[in-house]
Design a protein around this nucleic acid. Structure first.
Lengths: 202, 202
DNA sequence: GTCTATACGGCGATAGAC
DNA sequence: GTCTATCGCCGTATAGAC
């Protein structure tokens, strides 16, 4: 008998939703089973353990969300335009699912060694062509000579971190959800400008 | 009879270490008792619950580590010098305890509402005088007119986020621990330069 | 104040019946 | 494939000896 893809998918979807919403550790397998409308034991039949299920969900989320970003970094776009598009696309992804960031942070905290073993990290942090482009443009004198590692870290920090501290930003600046989104939308242009200004010659 | 401060402290220290190391949810009270060399029941005698113990530890960590930072932001230093000192002092704190960042991220993910109620957040994200200073300097024309909120978010993002993704940075750039520290030390000057360049007139 | 002993319900995981 | 029943560990709590 073939496994019932439908049941497996129901478990997967319920777990994804709960993990993102409440965090992995605060989600019980009984919660997942209940939300999926199936029995507790079935969750262990399809995925050997909660940790296994978690790995599958994490890998899936990363693959789904980094595809477009990698495409931009690997493209032949002119550097300034590439940065602009990357910042905008990255922020759009996080706006669609603001909990992704906290989720990833939790994973890094959860299993420091494991994370680097997963092939998936290359997707999250792959930027060979982009690096080369920054070095090349520096040599040509089109931009200031710039350390590509620091530049890349700056970029993803300014894009990502505000989502991780969303509650603090909202509280301190007295923003509601709608205003937080507007604030983040402003950051697209702000971050791009910040990055471009740092590499401008003169 | 006065409570034995020594036992309470032993529990507090053991729990602090374990929470930072393994995360709150993955640390059991039996682990804490064992590491502190005391009985399980004592842990409940001094702190009513694990959550209570956690709150005490979290508050303590924030207070201890933000004191110097707040002092710098509230000082009468010239803006450029203030930024330089803040970046450097902040990074030094995180270098001394790199797990602080992941810990704070986990807390934000853990209890979104609770965090903003704690007086402690004001310490983590208090910068009224600094904000005013940026606005004033902008009006005087000493710097470009700059949105202080975006500026502050940029600053703490570039300082903090690299610690949160430390395993990824080390893996991708093939750094050992010592080299990671060197990378972060470089960032003191890099971030300061980045920030100052963004507010320079011209 | 410190300890042993014990109990409760909830958890992740699994053996075995259907 | 799906279920029930059960296991051992967890956080929490308490009673009672020293």
């Amino acid at each position: 008998m073939a496994k019932n893809r439908n049941t497996e998918q129901k478990i997967f979807d319920a777990a994804t939703e709960l993990f993102l919403e409440k965090g992995v550790d605060r989600t019980s397998v009984r919660d997942i089973a209940s939300k999926a409308g199936i029995n507790l034991a079935l969750m262990n039949y399809y995925f050997r353990s909660k940790e296994n299920l978690f790995d599958a969900i994490f890998t899936n989320l990363v693959k789904k969300n980094t595809k477009d970003l990698v495409k931009i970094l690997d493209s032949d776009l002119e550097l300034g335009e590439k940065i602009k598009q990357y910042v905008s696309a990255y922020i759009d992804i996080l706006l669609k699912n603001p909990l992704l960031v906290s989720f990833f942070m939790a994973i890094l905290h959860r299993s420091r060694e494991k994370i680097t073993e997963m092939e998936v990290v290359s997707l999250l942090y792959g930027r060979e062509k982009f690096t080369q482009q920054i070095v090349d443009e520096g040599k040509k004198g089109n931009i200031r000579r710039t350390d590509p590692t620091h530049f890349y870290v700056d970029m993803i920090s300014m894009i990502t971190f505000p989502f991780a501290i969303k509650p603090m930003i909202m509280d301190k600046n007295e923003l509601n959800d709608e205003e937080f989104i507007a604030f983040i939308e402003q950051r697209k242009e702000h971050i791009t400008e910040m990055l471009l200004k740092s590499i401008m010659p003169c």
